[in-house]
Structures are given as structure tokens and as C-alpha cells.
Amino acid sequence: MRELSTVDRKILAKLQGDFPICERPYAEAAEQLGISEEELLQRIEQLLADKVLTRFGPMFQIEEMGGAFVLAALAAPEERYEEVAALVNALPAVAHNYRREHALNMWFVLATETKAGIAEAIARIERDTGLPVYAFPKEREFFVEMKLEARL
């Protein structure tokens, strides 16, 4: 794991949201961090290259645009794990996929532009892998706020 400088940490602490929408947003954000626009751009580029950041930009909430977002899982036999992961990941509708320790050992999030897209994606994964997919659509959301600060 790569070391993070004080400035990198500050970027992570202050810039997980509220990036401005204006003519020179990097300049405005940089000023609040006490660095130059050029330095901020370079640092973000480096953090992305080092995979400390997976992305820098808007995070969309697909349900608000009429689409759907559903957690699903399957039990992949160990000897087929990589093959199944490749088949699942090949679908653009799969936004995230995690290996977890459980009989249901592959947990992924489907994000589709229409609600009907979820059933299609599940049917496709079941057909491609030959494995049953368990869907866990949210029935109620109590809290979502994924902003974790660097703790290295």
C-alpha cells in the first residue's frame, strides 16, 4: 500500500463531495486546500494512477433517474470461481462485485437504466454461469453515507 502525504490525506478528507460546479472548479477546491490548481490536478492524477482513488467525478443515484440498483449473490464453486467472476463482471450492469466468505461467495450490485433491466441481467447471469442468482432488492433504506477518511 502506498504512503499518503499530508496533502493527499487532505484531499481525501475534504474532496469526497462538494466539488464545485463553476468555471475553474479545481482552482476553487485547491484554494480551500491551500495548494495550487496545478498541484491539485497532478495529485488527483497520481492518486488515480496509484489506485488510491477509483474515480474522480460525480456519483450517480440511478434510482433517481428511473433505473434500479439491486444487490445480488451467487454461490460459485471454488474450482470455477475465476471463470464465474469473469462472466459476471463482463456485464456492464454489474457496478461492483466482491468476493465474500460465505456459501454465497460472490456479491455484486446490478445498476440498470430501467427497472426491467435487473431481471434481464439476472437471467443473463444465470444462463451464462448455470448458477442460481439470489436477488436482494432493498425494501427500505435506513442510511447510506460512504465517506471514509484515510487512516494510514
Partner: peptide, 18 residues
Amino acid sequence: SGIIRRIGAVPNHYAIGW
């Protein structure tokens, strides 16, 4: 309207110590 949840850095949680 909430279509964009927020704009900014999306960290890899493993890489920042979580």
C-alpha cells in the same frame, strides 16, 4: 434532485487503510 449523489473523489477503501 439527487440524481447525482455527490461530486468528488471516490477512494479505494483498501488503499486508504480500511
